[in-house]
Nucleic acid binder design. Structure first.
Length: 276
DNA sequence: AGTGGCACCTGTGTGC
DNA sequence: TGCACACAGGTGCCAC
C-alpha cells in the first residue's frame, strides 16, 4: 500500500499518541509477517517513547529501552484508538501488533497481506546498522539526493529508468504509483534505460520526484484502494494522479491514450506521445 | 556485479 | 452462481 508519502502521513498520524508516553502493554499475533514477530518485542513494555521518525518506508519508534522498526509492506496501516482496558480490547481480523500507551491510546498495526515487518533493536544504533537500514540510498526530500549524485548512480545502469528510481539503493521511498507519475511530469519514457538519460532529464526528474512526494504528503497521501492515515482519513493525492491507473484515458496534456506496460513485474502507465 | 523473475500473502474484480 | 485467473501501494532471494 504505502509509498513514502503514505508512510510519512502515517508517522504524523501516530506521533502524538506515542511521543512522551509509556508503553504499558504489547500485543503481537502468532502469525508471521514478512518475518516472525519475535518474543523480544515484549522488551518495549515499560519504555517511554522518545521519538517517532521515518527512514525510507520504515517507521522507527525510539524509546528509553530500545528502538522499534516497522514496515507497512503493501497493506499495512496503523490506527490510533481509545481503549478502556487492555484485556477487553477487541482486535480486528489482520491486526498483528499493538502498543497500549498510558494515555489510554492503542496504536494498532493491521496488515492483510502480511508483507510488513516489526522488529525490536536494543538501541537506535543497532537498528540503523541492521541489514534493512544500513544500505539504503538517500532520502529524496534531502539535498543528498541531487543531480550529481543521481547522474553518478545512473551511469552504466542498463535497467529501465522506472525500475531504477524504485531501487532502494538509488533513491528510497519512490514506489509504483509515484514512479509513473514522476516520469510523466518529467516527460521521460519509463522504458528508457537509466544510462541514456541526459543531464537535463536527470535534473528535471529529481525536481519532479521531490515535488510530487512533497505535494502528496500535504494531500494526505494517495488512496487507491484502502490506504488511510492513522486517523482514518483517506489520501487525496489520488485526485492529482495524471497517469497511474489511467490506461486508455486521455493524457491530460495531449489527449493521447495512456498506455500500460509491465516493467519489473509492475504495472506502469505513461503517455507515448509526451514521454520520450 | 548486475539483472530478471519469482515468491511471500489475502482479497477483490473480471470474464467465461 | 461458481470457478479460475489476474492483479494489488513492497521487498528479498535465487539463478543466470
Amino acid at each position: 500500500m504505502p509509498e513514502l508519502p503514505e508512510v510519512e502521513v502515517t508517522r504524523r498520524g501516530i506521533v502524538n499518541a506515542l511521543d512522551g508516553f509509556k508503553v504499558i502493554k504489547v500485543f503481537k499475533a502468532d502469525v508471521s509477517l514478512r518475518y516472525p514477530l519475535l518474543d523480544n518485542l515484549i522488551n518495549i513494555e515499560g519504555a517511554t517513547v522518545t521519538k517517532v521518525q521515518r527512514r525510507a518506508k520504515f517507521i522507527i519508534i525510539d524509546t528509553t529501552k530500545g528502538s522499534l522498526l516497522v514496515h507497512l509492506g503493501m497493506t499495512g496501516h496503523f490506527s490510533v484508538l481509545d481503549y478502556k482496558d487492555v484485556d477487553s480490547f477487541e482486535f480486528l481480523k489482520h491486526d498483528h501488533f499493538a502498543l497500549f500507551l498510558d494515555n489510554k491510546k492503542a496504536v494498532v498495526l493491521n496488515d492483510q497481506r502480511r508483507f510488513g515487518l516489526v522488529q525490536w533493536f536494543a538501541s537506535n544504533e543497532e537498528l540503523f546498522n541492521s541489514k534493512h537500514i544500513k544500505d539504503l540510498a538517500p532520502e529524496p526530500l534531502t539535498d543528498d539526493f541531487n543531480d550529481k549524485y543521481l547522474a553518478n548512480k545512473l551511469k552504466n545502469k542498463s535497467v529501465a529508468i522506472k525500475k531504477a528510481i524504485m531501487d532502494n539503493h538509488i533513491v528510497v521511498g519512490v514506489g509504483n504509483i509515484y514512479a509513473s507519475e514522476c516520469l510523466f511530469l518529467s516527460k521521460i519514457n519509463p522504458l528508457k534505460l537509466a544510462k541514456d538519460l541526459t543531464k537535463e532529464e536527470i535534473s528535471f526528474l529529481i525536481t519532479n520526484i521531490k515535488d510530487v512526494l512533497a505535494r502528496s504528503i500535504e494531500s494526505g497521501g494517495t488512496t487507491i484502494r484502502d490506504f488511510q492515515g492513522a486517523d482514518g482519513k483517506l489520501g487525496y493525492f489520488v485526485q492529482h494522479l495524471n497517469v497511474y491507473g489511467h490506461k486508455g484515458k486521455p493524457c491530460p496534456i495531449c489527449q493521447t491514450e495512456i498506455e500500460q506496460v509491465v516493467i519489473g513485474g509492475r504495472s506502469t502507465y505513461f503517455c507515448p506521445h509526451c514521454q520520450k
